[in-house]
Amino acid sequence: MLALDIRNLNKKYPHFQIKDVSFQLEKGYIMGFIGANGAGKTTTIKSILNMVQVDSGEIYILGKNIADHEIELKQEIGCAFGDIDFYTRSKIKTLTDITKKFYKNWNDETYYNYLKRFKLDENKKIAELSRGMKVKYSLALALSHGAKLLILDEPTSGLDPVSRDDLLDIFQELIIGGEISILFSTHITSDLERCADYITFIEHGQIIASSEKNELKESYRLLSGSEAQLNEVREHLISYKINSFGFTGLIHAKDIDPSSSLRATTPSLDEIMIYFAKKEDVYV
């Protein structure tokens, strides 16, 4: 069963658009949503939550169309946007009391466990929290009403390495039963190397790839060789860099000539992102 099924989303703004965005997340798994700043991650996430009105496209959550079942489905979704910039002069306690009224399955015990785990003090005002603390607080809210699908926009940014590690542990604990699914956007790819099952990569409002993590990495190769060898492959390369040792470039694994003697390695997620970003620069 699919936890999330996004089909052909389109949304046009004066200077930016997301185009034909489609991807699926199977129930019980973690998907990382990556892309450079401004690639369309947040717009896509907000469209899923119906916080942005899309021009066209369909979104199914746990098998139901969100356009028809929005209120019901939102009980099943936990979302966090990293920052909280409303009611900043209220105490955590006050804001929680307001939030929990909206959720049928709110669980105080779970909530207080997270407060304790995140070392959050209920009596602090939102304005007094550091960025990392705000992230943790918004996560505590997202995780305390029995959500089946978590949609988190950059949950790890602003967190120190220890807190990030703890958060990834929480993600893995949550999916252990196979019932909860997580979609989270990030540009800290080491988080994904560790716990993501699937990766969706967006660039300039379009999905470049969406597949199992290792498959995605294996579908590209990082080639290196001398400048003379560059000519053999230049037209197939997504982009390349030249230095005094020769060149390094990213290529689709299917475009590699099997008889080629060039050194080929599997790129990291960072490298894939960097070379795709570089490709765009060429056209500018």
Partner: peptide, 17 residues
Amino acid sequence: IRQAALELHVSVITVKK
């Protein structure tokens, strides 16, 4: 599988494979 993934800090699909 899911227990091993959590303990080894790797993804579920990695252990499955």
